[in-house]
Design a protein around this nucleic acid. Structure first.
Length: 718
RNA sequence: GGGCGAUUAGCUCAGUUGGUAGAGCAAUCCGUUUACACCGGAAAGGUCGGGGGUUCAAGUCCCUCAUCGCCCACCA
């Protein structure tokens, strides 16, 4: 019996293989496309294949969804690398502005500290230290999963070059009049003390009361009686015969604290069927009412401050929190006989997606991006099929989003982020680029321009990520742009994907990727979303330790169709660990039975039955290749699994056993068949199960290059 | 109120252009034959959510209903 490596005589043990093999790959340099054979041999420009990794948040460990991302992207990358393409996968880390700030604030809270009592610079420095430390852990997790990405090109969203380019984009938008300083209602979180974009709010069902309040000749229905001090008008539908006669009149309304003069306006937006058909207008604390104040030129009276308390406009209610004031105001209105009735009412209320605090719309000066023209270009590109979606029904969702944009508030009142390169006047709220107007310049309003301390919404920088990750505007790597595939979670179809398309088109005229592959969410075994509060979070690193990265990877991919959610079932991973061992044991059998046959041994003459075996293998190669080209990774993986186990191991090996016991040509050809089928299987399995296959590849007699750069099998060897 | 997805074997899910239903796990029986018990073999298990339609043929296309899930939404 020929010698087989000692480790092959025992069951497969991933922990003895994985970190060693990863190191081998790193040292080979093949993660970097500049070192690939195709980069150095041909004088022709080799075809490139590029994927930009969605940069994981550098504020914790990877979760199960990341593992799916890594598995899918690494499959694409390894497959295309083996196809001989100049293949680049750029890793990154996201500072994740508000997300990280929230994580860090929780940490501060536990220590009995508060960001509001800290110096901006000190806070920034602390979060930076925390982030850089977390970043290391996150990167170790990415490596543990086997990601064959080019670490020499890794980017962090707070790298100085990234920061300055993000700021430059803002300046360009400003010059192109696509960014403006607006004074409008924004989504204000009273806990986190910052404005949020619409995608950072979550609507939750709330049971409230609907109060019918007498307003002079009207009765208006409202859930927010505490805002009556900010009322400036009553709106009715102009077609409503009940109220038509009042339109244009000013009516006097008595409240507990004061008497208001309210203009009656007619507006088609008012639903005649809801409530009483008459609506009180509070422009400073309601997005709708604000819009009406624009069309009808109404004043805006602020009555709630940044902490969610009533201000002195509310007289004796000043200083009270919203909930408390509501109770008191209702009591007082009732004693004045001004409440006609109170109904139970269930409605959807936007709240902060991090702390669930009800969002308070507040009028604030902030920077906004004009979305309509940018979104139109993105929609056009998608309609022209310059960008396609897998699965394709996401195209509809994307287009719906692009056709219904509202201007994007990019100012955040937090320190953790990229500072907006602007100056503002705190008196008149005018703003300008820092490069146009240096801080300290007097403002015509007799104020003075000071540096804006606000930071960008994190999606403003991540929206430019495909370019930033390639070092834009530095041209060295721009030959990799546009990239081929953007693979990410389906929840990012509106948070992230459109912004990347928009900025890619805006900055270069080209969409940043041709294909958007969206995977579903990885849920727990009951199909429930994983969350820390539910305590059902499963760490991919724990699973890797227990079953091996290969088993985890392929179990996440097989049976998982794009766009659909996946239940993470440990039994399934265990099943694929068994598959790893099956491959391991089949290899042991082959290597102990092939005598002197090597990968270089010439093809012997084959029987008719042997030809059939290779014909079947050919059809597997064709089908696996087609599936991979068509993003059907789940089918490619399943096909390989069954071919290896049921056909190769159960049938072909068994069939060859008697021949191996003989002597002569039949034995020789049997040896050759076994080694070659094993070798072709290893190549095709490599993108799915890189560690195990690379380890075994190195044991095959006369294998030279590492498997990572072996050519993808096209057809059976002749 | 709108949109999307799902509904297939006990469980988790596949089933690409329509052509007589598949896998893993679980459960049943047999087997320890020198790659592997993290194994092999055998058998069992589904009127593909209901109803209609198109077709020679439908899990697959169309309509409709039901249930579940997700997302979006400015009727105060």
């Amino acid at each position: 019996m020929p010698d087989v490596p000692e480790k092959l005589t025992k069951p497969y043990e991933p922990s003895l293989t994985e970190s060693r093999i990863y190191k081998l790959w790193e040292e080979s340099g093949f993660f970097n496309p500049d070192n690939l054979p195709c980069a150095n041999t041909s004088n022709l420009k080799p075809q490139t294949f590029t994927v930009i990794m969605p940069p994981p948040n550098a504020n914790g460990r990877l979760h199960a969804g990341h593992a799916l991302t890594i598995a899918l992207e690494d499959i694409m990358i390894r497959y295309n690398r083996m196809q001989g393409k100049k293949t680049l996968w750029v890793p990154g880390a996201d500072h994740a502005g508000f997300e990280t700030q929230v994580v860090y604030e929780k940490k501060l809270e536990k220590e009995g500290r508060s960001r509001f009592k800290m110096d901006r610079q000190d806070l920034y420095k602390e979060i930076m230290e925390f982030t850089l430390e977390s970043k290391k852990n996150m990167e170790a997790d990415v490596k543990a999963l086997g990601a064959s990405c080019d670490w020499s090109r890794e980017k962090f969203t707070l790298d100085p070059s990234v920061v300055s380019e993000v700021q430059e984009t803002f300046r360009k938008l400003y010059r192109d009049e696509l960014v403006y300083r607006g004074y409008r209602t924004v989504n204000w979180c009273t806990k986190h003390q910052t404005a949020l974009s619409d995608v950072e709010t979550e609507t939750t069902e709330k049971n409230d009361k609907l109060y019918y309040i007498k307003y002079g000749p009207f009765v208006v229905a409202t859930v927010r009686p505490e805002t009556i001090f900010g009322d400036v008008a009553i709106a009715v539908n102009p077609k409503d015969p009940r109220y038509q006669k009042y339109i244009g009149q000013t009516i006097e309304v008595t409240h507990p604290e004061n008497t208001l003069k309210l203009l009656v306006i007619g507006d088609d937006e008012v639903d005649r069927e809801f409530g009483t058909g008459a609506l009180k207008i509070t422009p400073a604390h309601d997005h709708n009412d604000f819009r009406m104040s624009e069309t009808h030129k109404l004043p805006r009276v602020e009555v709630i401050d940044q902490f969610g308390k009533l201000n002195d406009k509310a007289g004796k209610y000043a200083g009270m929190k919203i909930a408390e004031a509501r109770v008191k105001v209702v009591e007082d209105l009732q004693s004045l006989g001004l409440i006609e009735k109170i109904e139970d009412y269930t409605h959807a209320v936007p709240s902060c997606y991090k702390c669930n605090t009800v969002i308070e719309p507040r009028v604030m000066p902030q920077w906004f991006i004009k979305m309509a023209p940018l979104a139109k270009r993105a929609a056009d590109a998608v309609r022209a099929k310059e960008v396609r979606f897998v699965p394709d029904n996401f195209e509809k969702i994307f287009l719906y989003w692009m056709d219904n944009t509202i201007d994007w508030n990019i100012s955040r009142q937090i320190v953790w982020g990229i500072q907006i390169p602007a100056v503002i006047c705190k008196i008149c709220n005018k703003g300008d680029l820092d490069t146009n107007t240096p801080a300290g310049t007097p403002c015509p309003c007799r104020g003075v321009f000071v540096a804006d301390t606000d930071t960008f919404d994190t999606w403003f920088s991540s929206g430019q990520w495909p370019l930033l990750a390639l070092g834009y505007p530095n041209t060295k790597d721009l030959s990799y742009y546009p990239t081929q595939v953007m693979e990410t979670g389906r929840d990012l179809i509106f948070k992230w994907v459109p912004r990347m398309v928009i900025f890619g088109l805006y900055l270069t005229g080209k969409a940043p990727f041709h294909t958007v592959y969206l995977h579903g969410m990885v849920n727990d075994k009951q199909g429930k979303k994983m969350s820390k509060s539910k305590g059902n979070v499963v760490s991919p690193i724990d699973l890797t330790t227990k079953y091996g990265a290969d088993a985890l990877r392929i179990s996440l991919v097989v049976g998982n169709t794009p766009g659909n959610d996946l239940s993470l079932i440990e039994e399934k991973i265990k099943g694929y660990k068994h598959f790893c061992n099956k491959i391991w044991n089949a290899t042991r059998f082959v290597l102990t039975n092939i005598g002197n046959t090597t990968l270089d041994t010439e093809r012997p003459s084959l029987s008719l039955r042997d030809e059939e075996i290779f014909k079947e293998l050919d059809s597997v190669v064709v089908s696996v290749t087609t599936h991979l080209e068509s993003f059907r990774f789940h089918l490619a993986g399943e096909k390989l699994y069954h071919y290896f186990w049921n056909t190769f191991a159960d049938t072909i090996i068994e069939e060859m056993k008697p021949r191996l016991a003989e002597d002569g040509d039949s034995k020789k050809s049997a040896e050759w068949i076994l080694l070659h089928i094993l070798s072709i299987n290893l190549k095709m399995l490599h993108p799915f199960m890189p560690f195990l296959t690379e380890e075994i590849w190195g044991m095959l007699p006369s294998s030279k290059n590492p498997l990572i750069i072996e050519p993808w099998p096209k057809y059976s060897p002749q």
